[in-house]
Design a protein around this nucleic acid. Structure first.
Lengths: 158, 158
DNA sequence: TTTAGATGGTTGCAAGTGAGACTATCATAG
DNA sequence: CTATGATAGTCTCACTTGCAACCATCTAAA
């Protein structure tokens, strides 16, 4: 008679935790700035990278479906938070970057999100936070979650 | 100039990891048994508890919306994996339990899922797995994710 | 040069899901 | 007993999102 305790089952716990953490953060980007998760991911990727990048790159490294990213980019362009230019080397592709307005929003949003993250992790000591990050990293690596981001980056550098 | 590295940002990492782990597991319950996540959660809750319980209880402790659980229960009843009886003490509520057929499926499914979980965690040592569980637990606690399950259980026991 | 296949991006469609209205029932207070 | 509010469960609606078809463009090979 095999049994499974849902509350000790890591996949379930990850799901529940991710959902809860997401909803805690959405207060910031959703309610305050009217961004949904895909839109936030686009801004986050553009904001972190020095070089502008393509929608495909964002889709790859955030592991979000390209149609979802496409819609997010459209919405961000309508709000003039992001703009895009044709890539002269490859006219299928657009190069994306934040507008000044987008950067301003980004600058305001980031500290809030980092603060939220700290709040959520405040139940852990500094060492525990570090340990947690390492353990997450190991699991991510074994699932090839980091690999793809690097690949996409390497490829994008052409 | 504040920046945020998405790949070091715990909320994003949790989301991505949870999605990836879910999709790895869905091979088992989805493709093999045609169950979706809510349906699997219902079975998991019914299978673990000794006493049968209500849909509301499942919704509370799995943190799933009651309408989602309602639909899952309907689907499971149609497949005769779950049955329900009116609670004589409270005729608003139904008491749910697995049928023999449901139990058989459950018995077959559980070992597969546990094996998958072990595969996913196989990149961690025994001690690391333990640490990871503890850290998850601390975060869950601070977000009140465990509390609600216990409350629902206590209440259900009346 | 032409053709076949790959790739970046968009869009229509269908499935899943949360919010919230609704019904039926229960509990409590007057 | 009645009225009010809470609760269990269902249902409709709107929204999100993944899938897959599609178009344009690029690459490589014949």
């Amino acid at each position: 008679m095999s049994k499974l305790d849902l509350f000790r089952f890591v996949p379930f716990r990850l799901n529940r935790l991710a959902a809860e953490v997401s909803s805690a953060l959405s207060v910031e980007y959703q309610e305050r700035y009217g961004l949904d998760i895909p839109e936030w991911r686009v801004l986050a990727t553009l904001g972190f990278r020095v070089e502008p990048c393509s929608a495909q790159y964002i889709a790859h490294c955030t592991r979000t479906h390209k149609s979802t990213i496409s819609r997010a980019v459209t919405a961000l362009m309508e709000r003039q938070l992001v703009e895009r230019v044709e890539n002269t080397h490859d006219r299928r592709e657009f190069v994306l970057r934040m507008t000044r307005k987008g950067k301003t929003l980004y600058e305001q949003l980031i500290p809030r999100l980092l603060r939220r993250e700290q709040e959520i992790l405040s139940c852990l000591s500094a060492q525990e936070r570090k340990d947690f990050a390492v353990l997450l990293g190991k699991i991510e690596n074994s699932l090839d979650l980091v690999q793809t981001a690097k690949e996409a980056g390497a490829k994008e550098a052409y």
